[in-house]
Design a protein around this nucleic acid. Sequence first.
DNA 1: CCGTATCCCATAAGATACTG
DNA 2: CAGTATCTTATGGGATACGG
Lengths: 145, 145
Amino acid sequence: MVSFVVSDGSTMPVRPQSHNQAQTDYPLSKRSYLIAMNTSKSPANSLTAAAIVENVIKCKWSLTVFRLVREGVNRPGAMERAVPGLTTKVLNERLLKFVRFGVFERREFAELPPRVEYSLTAFGQKFAGVLDAVDSLQKELPSTD
Amino acid sequence: MVSFVVSDGSTMPVRPQSHNQAQTDYPLSKRSYLIAMNTSKSPANSLTAAAIVENVIKCKWSLTVFRLVREGVNRPGAMERAVPGLTTKVLNERLLKFVRFGVFERREFAELPPRVEYSLTAFGQKFAGVLDAVDSLQKELPSTD
DNA sequence: CCGTATCCCATAAGATACTG
DNA sequence: CAGTATCTTATGGGATACGG
């Protein structure tokens, strides 16, 4: 009977599985699961969408900031005031990332006091599609009642 | 003329803006941007979809692991082998989170050597809609050629 | 108002070893 | 094979202060 060597030197008997596939027989090669997941600094056009979403979203506040801008709360000060807990530092980190990845656009007005507004780029509009998918997920959740 | 006090005690003259809105006049109240963003440990049914996505996605490997399972690479060993750089520890952390949030289902077979398979739950299928949105984003990216 | 810099703590994550 | 534990390093993020 086939046996399986355990780390301590002992063996475990092997009951063949249905298809009894060898350990090399897996449906998927390593492929390119990684190629995009890099946290590189390069702009959007050298990354996959998945990588952009990861880079941009994997932060506690990313979705919040995105929604704010999308809904018109587009001045840093307003955003900070609208969301208790959101700090200047983190907000700016997110804004920079969104801008760097071509999701947000930054417009500065030559006024005093200074005024800056962020808005979605054309690509950012598409990006919103992801959030819409998230929202539609909501409907699938068991009711919280 | 109205002036604006700078931190050093000096003042900056203020040129009124188009609508010259007061600083309290912002389009959005604080609302519930936060309510869902908690990193609570509770299962899916007490969280919003956005929170689930954040909790589950805000990891370097989450999207990768999700795709693996979705495409049928559903045994931990296979996943680890399929993705260079993915470690046991991180993989298990992600698998546990996915299971806890009801995205993955874990099936254990009473065999030797032990076999475990993960698969998408019904909710997980819906979750995939988010990834589809990500993939469709890909088409909107400037060509990398 | 907008943005940057620092210091400090919490969490993420890679490497490694080990149990069932 | 599947999973847990531990240790160390890297990164995230909150608070605060400051400069344009």
